[in-house]
Amino acid sequence: MYMTQLDWEFIARYAPLYVEAAKLTVYIAFWGILFALLVGMVCSAALYYRVPVLRRVIAVYIELSRNTPLLVQLFFLYFGLPNIGIVLSGEACAIIGIAFLGGSYMAETLRSGLESIDKSQAESAASLGFGRWLTMKEIIFPQALAVSVPGICANVIFLIKETSVVSGIALADLMYVAKDLIGLYYRTDEALTMLVVAYLVILLPVSVAATLLERRLRHAGFGN
């Protein structure tokens, strides 16, 4: 057994590196997830209203995005696209990658939320003189959102975890820093312990918040 005590001095010295890296991870996750939600909302609306051509395009996008790994998507964006004159920074690639991947997951979740709302809701709204936009904004969307929240939370956690892949395109996120410390000082135990702690610090609050939110929204459904 090589089991040794953790070197706390080493941990104290390099913890600031992890804080910086965690900021990058959170930054990419935040913008990526925000854009993923936007993409998801637009796509789910187009699917819900059965917009003629757009609907097919979105279906293709969803299949492409859900059936390929993020790492491969990022390699294509970061190493492939410069050949046709599209040069993006690492951060931009990471955010676009997360948005491209997450967009389809969010779209599917929101669409199933929208479709779970009974047709009578839209009909009642119409009989009260609500227009299409108002019906969506005031009646359908709030209820659909409540139904979708567990799925959205699961997607958010999934996407934060997926950001660990961006070290593959040389972004100095948590994985990258850990790999760097292992390579430089061979302090594998300390580097990996800090890595696990850093991800727990980011993900545990999100996971707890998701559970609380789901519990709160369980009562929001209509008629049950």
Binding site: K161, D189, L192, V196, L203
Partner: peptide, 18 residues
């Protein structure tokens, strides 16, 4: 809750060392 990449690093780099 752990990214799979972290688990891979633990199994591949961490276990060997520890």
């Amino acid at each position: 809750i752990m990214p799979q990449l972290v688990l891979l690093f633990i199994a591949y780099f961490g276990v060997t060392r520890t």
